[in-house]
Design a protein around this nucleic acid. Sequence first.
DNA 1: TCTCTTACGTTTTTT
DNA 2: ACGTAAGAGA
Length: 731
Amino acid sequence: MDVSHLIDGLNAAQREAVSAAPGHLLVLAGAGSGKTRVLTQRVAWLVEVEGVWPHAILAVTFTNKAAAEMRGRCERLLNRPTQGLWIGTFHGLAHRLLRLHWREAGLLETFQILDADDQQRLIKRVISEQGLDDTRFVARQGTWMINAWKDEGKRPRDIDPGDNPDLARWIEVYQGYEASCQRQGLVDFAELLLRSHELWLTQPALLDHYRRRFSHLLVDEFQDTNTIQYAWIRMLAGSSAQVFAVGDDDQSIYSWRGARVANMQAYTRDFPNVSTIRLEQNYRSTGTILAAANAVIKRNSERLGKELWTAAGNGEPISIYAAYNEQDEARYVVERIRRAVAEDIRPSEIAILYRANALSRVFEEELIRHGVAYRVYGGLRFFERAEIKDALAYLRLLANPADDAAFERVVATPPRGVGDKTLEDLRQAARSGGVSLLQTAAEASREGTLKGRARGGIEALLSLFASLRESADGDESPRLYERLEGLIEGSGLRAHYAAQSKHDADSRVDNLDELISMARGFVLSADDEAAGISEMAAFLSYAALESGEGQGEAWDDCVQLMTLHAAKGLEFPCVFMVGMEDGLFPSQRAIDEGGSAQLEEERRLAYVGITRARRQLTLSHAESRRLRGMETWNRPSRFISELPRNTIVEVRPRAQLSRGGNFGQPRKQPTQDWGDEPGIALGSQVSHAQFGEGVVVAAEGQGDHARVQVNFEDVGSKWLVLAYANLVVLG
DNA sequence: TCTCTTACGTTTTTT
DNA sequence: ACGTAAGAGA
């Protein structure tokens, strides 16, 4: 058989991985080393060369985007649809298992997926139902703990509160939350995994079935697996399946949400004869960029060890820009972008990366000012928008009348005269009767226990549902989008948001229309159809599992703005890492508490950032920065000083010095301390609100840019922008 | 019950 | 600075 198309163009290590003999394999794939290619060609190799039935292969990733890309590439390689081949995210595959075996898993057939928002709302409800003080028991924290427990595979009974009474209460909240989910047929993200793991644990016959079926498991981004995901893989693999794990410990940046790099070591221990292959040749970046990345990551102690190299040349040095403040930083970056675009670099080939979302704003403003098209990643996703969740809540309640979370949403928007009082009565009655809110509302309406406006509102709602259900049962059952359209009109949602948007000026109504057109274009997959899942149920799951706007679609031709986390897996010819300041990146938290583990994770994040760049990399920091309404003064990030000297070039703004004399007109109106003072002379004694007293030793720049170097008694020498520093001249 | 005002808490995020 | 989430008047 001719296997050259699976092997040609690969380097030795890649080829070794793709064509590895049967057995377990750990591929340590450095950034830009062709990981996805190896993974997909391995699948093709298994099918075409080893003669493995596609049916017997399961490939798992973390994001829908990665799964889609893998499926697409496999189909192209194998030249046929990947029928029977399970490719998906951990959550997607777990969800499929639960849909197929809902009865064995102890779920309602109509179970729905609870998103993060609904989850927190529900936990809050449980906290108040248990009569806990919600200032001491904060829902956000509870959500975080419960998710962490689930990620570790722990049920309430597995947690020992010791002699910590708060912890004991939290365990009760967890219990209450579980009971509530169970009653309503709701499953949160972590539950998908935990529940499917338990499904196998408690149903040996089922487990056996899947173990017989899947002889080959492939896992992408192995460094990001958490405890339950690893256990899931291990359980499915048993002692027969071959596991092909690909990961990079240097790119592990999600430990704060339960990811355990240690799973990579555990894998080599828990499975017999795991061979390790390192992919170290990089096809993305210049030699300079790789030298910088290698030097930075080398400072971490907990590493499996790996050093990237390239056959390409060194390329340009890395630029470091020391800005006066965040405005100056934005000005510089956008100026550079405009210059690059003028030199025929496409805007979509340029990325601005930052540690925290809050940093994006200045850059957006500056980009707008210069009419540069840009796109910000992150933030609210389509299916998380309030108006979309409202519309979907109607659908959810239609699909699963026990879904109280959906009922609460539905009853509150649009306002229909049903307020806290009525709702609390309904909850009481529902709890004591052990039935759903919807059912309780129907009973209350029948018995006439509702009064005033509330009665009209509830009755209108009930009749809306009756008519929606009736039309579904008719001979000509409406398509999903028609039902959605009907409910958006009939409920008054559209009118409600239309009325709101008059002053909001945003396009909530347009989003509702977009949702309808998404429903119109929605196609039930063959897998779902085979599993007997309705169009509506499938659409709702899709909405929950694929949060909308496929991450990484470089829309039009826009400059890309995103966090360093969001940039993982992407690459850009031209990258700006901004806000490179101690306290921001590495974050203050990592500096203060973490000890070295957190700092090492920040360093890996820096490594991820650096390795996103193909040709041009620029790092910038600002001496002063307005953040959260407060002026802060940060030192350049320690990661900048970890770059080898020969890889960087420091860009300085052209300084217009006026030495010796007076300089630096305060910006805007002079401050009180300043009065009509002509300026500050070298050698002046000055005082700063934060740094204390010091002597002016140098100065440069004019107007907004005027800066002085002050030697402070306590904190040493610093450059300060006069317009912002509010220095008081002493004596 | 709805709407307006005040207080709070602010890494990173997928599913 | 800013957006959300809980509390007070209409």
